[in-house]
């Protein structure tokens, strides 16, 4: 690990000041950041420890929703009674990721900011436009089993690796951000960015901005499922995952909020999927139509070609499961 200056941020304002510099990073749980620092993928000169700034509470909002402190751990969140009862897709998504030891340390804010697990990104001897702009992308013609099939660019085909944010996207949650210019709220669906020509810019956070919380809207009920397909039954990243919040009324879809993990540089939310399903009775043909829309622009890179049919089947399986195998 390269030498760095460690400072415990005494206040949110000071944390913003400390992390405003190009060479500075905030550390919370540290489970991803310290791993990357050991690999010298991350080499901050200044590390601002924000762990003691407070915002670790999980509390009800005025409109019946729930505010998850950015410094609440993934475990605190997954086992919280209200998350378990009102937002089960979120508990399920968190519990499907990492290990208990990691979830006990990882924070909600840090989870949103975790970096890709692309092998070329984490190996400093390999080309990677994300880690070293202009050096090329090793994955496009290389080992790409975990890589994206949607929203890729000729610069980067990495995926956002997390599970939690996929559920947050389906739930329509918002990220609360504080910085030198004040506070702002960004929908989770808009928080992460596609790689485009700037794959090193992964989310909307600007220098000196700190995530303080995640706000869940009032509970919507419905049947909530997080289905994660992976190579091991535990402690593996998603090849494909689906977070689904589904309701049927009079035999037709009255709610269909779906988000997908493992497919892109961000949790994938396509409003056309819900539009396709709403008001329609479940049927195999309808599920195929939804998959056609989702995968319209999908592109494989050899090793990950399998993700296209796998995504189709996983979506189909989730919809069939929720609708009681009506199709």
């Amino acid at each position: 690990m390269r030498p760095f200056q460690y400072t415990r941020a005494p206040s949110l304002t000071e944390a913003s000041n400390l992390t405003a510099g190009e060479d500075a990073l905030a550390i919370a749980g540290g489970t991803n950041l310290l791993d990357l620092m050991k690999l010298q993928v991350e080499t901050p000169g200044q590390l601002a420890d924000i762990n003691r700034l407070g915002f670790a509470d999980i509390e009800a909002t005025d409109d019946g929703g729930l505010r998850l402190g950015a410094l609440a751990t993934n475990t605190d969140t997954a086992v919280h009674p209200r998350v378990r009862s009102d937002y089960p897709v979120l508990s399920r998504a968190i519990l499907a990721g990492a290990t208990q030891q990691l979830r006990n340390k990882a924070t909600n804010g840090g989870n949103l900011c975790q970096r890709t697990r692309c092998f070329y990104f984490t190996n400093i001897d390999q080309p990677c436009n994300k880690r070293e702009p202009g050096s090329g992308c090793g994955a496009i013609d290389g080992i790409a089993k975990l890589h994206a099939i949607l929203g890729t660019s000729n610069q980067c085909i990495a995926t956002y690796p997390g599970d939690m944010a996929v559920a947050l996207s389906a739930l329509g949650a918002a990220v609360e951000i504080s910085g030198e210019k004040g506070e702002r709220s960004v929908p989770v669906r808009d928080f992460h960015l596609l790689p485009g020509d700037t794959p090193w810019i992964e989310n909307v956070l600007e220098a000196g901005e700190i995530i303080t919380g995640i706000v869940l809207p009032a509970p919507v009920g419905g049947t909530q499922i997080y289905r994660k397909v992976r190579e091991r039954s535990s402690y593996a990243f998603a090849l494909v995952s689906v977070a689904a919040i589904i309701e049927l009324a009079d035999g037709k879809f009255s709610r269909a909020d779906l988000a997908f993990g493992g497919l892109a540089h961000k949790p994938w939310f396509d409003p056309r999927i819900g539009e396709c399903l709403l008001g329609q009775p479940p049927s195999a043909a309808l599920f195929e139509k939804a998959a056609d829309i989702l995968l319209e622009d999908a592109r494989g890179y050899g090793e990950n070609d399998f993700k296209i049919p796998l995504t189709r089947r996983t979506l189909h399986a989730v919809l069939a499961q929720v609708t009681g195998d009506a199709a």
């Binding site: 550390i27 489970t31 420890d49 030891q101 990691l102 340390k105």
Partner: peptide, 25 residues
């Protein structure tokens, strides 16, 4: 790197990977 768990310890009653956290924290 937090993958094997051999370094697991209990901090304030909670189990964590001691390799992925700084003593200073």
């Amino acid at each position: 790197h937090g993958q094997c768990g051999a370094c697991t310890v209990i901090v304030n009653g909670i189990r964590i990977n001691s390799c992925l956290t700084l003593a200073a924290m």
